[in-house]
Design a protein around this nucleic acid. Sequence first.
DNA 1: CGTAGTGTTGAGTCAAGTCAATGGTTGTGG
DNA 2: CCACAACCATTGACTTGACTCAACACTACG
Lengths: 248, 248
Amino acid sequence: MDAEHPLQLLVRNFELRCRLSPESRQALLDLPHSVQTMEAGSYLVREGEPPKKSVVPISGYACRQKITRAGTRQIIAIQIPGEAVDLQNLYLETADHNVQMLRRGTVALVPRDKLRELARSNSEIGEAIFAKTLVEAAIFREWVVNIGRRQAPQRIAHILCELGFRLKSMGLAKEYGYELPMTQEELGDAVGLTPVHVNRTLKLLVAEGLIERDKRSVSFPNWQKMRDAADFNERYLHPGIQAPIANF
Amino acid sequence: MDAEHPLQLLVRNFELRCRLSPESRQALLDLPHSVQTMEAGSYLVREGEPPKKSVVPISGYACRQKITRAGTRQIIAIQIPGEAVDLQNLYLETADHNVQMLRRGTVALVPRDKLRELARSNSEIGEAIFAKTLVEAAIFREWVVNIGRRQAPQRIAHILCELGFRLKSMGLAKEYGYELPMTQEELGDAVGLTPVHVNRTLKLLVAEGLIERDKRSVSFPNWQKMRDAADFNERYLHPGIQAPIANF
DNA sequence: CGTAGTGTTGAGTCAAGTCAATGGTTGTGG
DNA sequence: CCACAACCATTGACTTGACTCAACACTACG
């Protein structure tokens, strides 16, 4: 696993929904890059600054977030290993949000220019990148719906489904569940609730038999029931060719 | 105005932040298209269906929306004239949300394939389209923050600022305000509140001297004060070259 | 093995929702 | 051009989901 090429995860991520030719795959792996360990809470991108390097988490999770003037934080997205963080800034000059490591982990750094060059010269990769950013946008949209129109229990259930589904797609989940890398405070910041209310709501979901918890790992005793209760439909994740696999 | 080429607005929209060569501009105008009148509430894109035509509102506004299983609606974005609606689906096979006309209006229809072809063959246009979808994604992110972490008065103030700013950038606003094309129910669906609460909150904003209302038009007696109260910072709109203009 | 960060629980408050009635606008067809 | 009908805005009274404050328990890591 550790012996693997660090950008292999990036390739796997693109290949979730686009077929890549062997040449394109190799071109991605050939991108110049360095691997670095990052502490929990360290910033990968900072609002208001120009993004210089493109970052791909290899182990550990990152989150996109913004701080309001009132000082509250909203987490806008969770980036799992293999998901390049800066595609959202690839053609913009200034970052409009922050990206932070949730826990300690390793990341691969790729020069932004090289990635842009590759996207321009290889249209298969260019379109794969475009498609990936569109799927990210679809996730942002679903979060708007989740936070705007669902009650706390559904809201938390929904994000748990999404993370599970995405991790499973990437082969990063366990058989029935997965390691949830977030504190209850962070979870609250992701769904627009307070940590106290997250705590109570998680208890409720356990009581209703929708989830099981052990430390920071979550599992779903009955995936269909959970899916239903959460109003979760994976269509917005555009799972593509490997759709039937990702199922708990 | 009516004698103008219908796709002129689309060009103007791209040129807000990308310089286009005369050739690229002409290539956009040369796209095959038809103009059509659409009734209020008619669907331009439907969740679960493949998008066939790319739609550009010419007069009138459209909105992106999703319905939860509980039957509540969340509006995810407002598309103003000149903003191509289907860029979000350009490289995806199935729409994950609905797009609807808010009021009666006219739209230009462009075959999706032709637009994709042009994006591929003309990298200036390809990157302009990519950049535009990234700005849309930035707006989705800001909406997550707005709905997740701001109180009702700020939340409504913020969306009013955003719409004003965007309309002003496109030259579609009046001197001090603009025509708000939404009912209070629609506004509520956009910010995750009930129509009753929207009504009370609008009254509050008027009482505080932040906005003035006359029928469905809104104006800002003191833009700086409004901006401040709304926690509005236009950075996420990536206003680009014409930034200083857009100011109330 | 102590300390700081999390998780858990209870009691009280408040922002926003619900229900319901009334009043205004707007658009359409006679 | 008027009159109706449908839709939209407004207001009041009451309810509730989520927040706040505060205390205590766990647990992980140096």
